[in-house]
Nucleic acid binder design. Sequence first.
DNA 1: TACTTTGTTTAGTTATTACTAAACGTTCTA
DNA 2: TAGAACGTTTAGTAATAACTAAACAAAGTA
Lengths: 175, 175
Amino acid sequence: MADNQTIKSNFVEGLSGISAFWGFPKGMGAIFAVLYLSPAPLSLDELVAQTGLTKGAISTNVRALSRMGLIKPITRLGDRKDYYAAETDFYKSIRSILSERQNSEFDQAVASVKVTLQKLEAGEGSFDPAERAFLIERVKALQSFFDALDSLTRAVARLEGLGFGTIQNVLSILK
Amino acid sequence: MADNQTIKSNFVEGLSGISAFWGFPKGMGAIFAVLYLSPAPLSLDELVAQTGLTKGAISTNVRALSRMGLIKPITRLGDRKDYYAAETDFYKSIRSILSERQNSEFDQAVASVKVTLQKLEAGEGSFDPAERAFLIERVKALQSFFDALDSLTRAVARLEGLGFGTIQNVLSILK
DNA sequence: TACTTTGTTTAGTTATTACTAAACGTTCTA
DNA sequence: TAGAACGTTTAGTAATAACTAAACAAAGTA
């Protein structure tokens, strides 16, 4: 029915779609998919061949994937090439991604909420008392929501070695 | 120091950034922020005035926000205008967003992984036995990861009325 | 030292997406 | 029924992001 290449292509397309859905480049998903289906680590040129992307694109995407912990770079002695292999411990990847997202723009944006709250509580601006109280209440609620989210991700990240089965079980207890 | 408008603007920009970070339009974050800081529901025209966006943009973004459960439309008798208010129960919103994401493109992409697995197990393609076994193992692992993720989101969605404090506590038990 | 082989960086292109401006369809009002 | 008030839709634009092609840097090899 379907030949080897077609079967693999469908898989690659699927992961590309998932990648795009989560706001990552499509090519990133494709690269990961190719590596994931490969028994041996692949070099940059092999990835060029198997994905149809150019070296430049592979280079940048591979770097991002490494930073996220979704793939791991492999260097062989006496071989100047870089090889890459898919990380098969998804839980490890998730922790890696979470700690990655923790920083950067997100924290920065969340911080601005904190600043707003501080200014309001410091009496800045010329709000009438009722409005100020209202604003403080609202912003404070948002703030604590972010704090809870943060705690949650930290908690998840702390669960080293444990798989999702565990989380699943725990949550099922709550019904 | 900072006037009322500046304080609010900073907050709006912050939420815009958060929105963008999660792959949503910046304007969506801005609209939610404005509503969130408003004691009373706002009409479309008031949103136009306070965000600087045009009616069209407000219209589409407001629809998306409603679908996600982040804001709620309010209609008043004898008033043809639509009003919108921010949902303040973030937990409710999260559940809503999760169930929204559940469907659509994501499921579709995940399904393609399942199809790949089925084809492999059905003996399609002309892989040699060793490679087929390898591929099946890999794809199966990914499949069960997705299943676990799915269970997790369902479990979270099932926790009606419970706040994040609960989840936090539960996860902290695991250390 | 010149030439290969590798990966990275950059400048420019393509594709996508969020937006604006304006036309449109409805529904209410005079 | 004409006109006004709303929200939606659409066609076009602007901004952004991912990619290609090619120049480049680094580091080995002849």
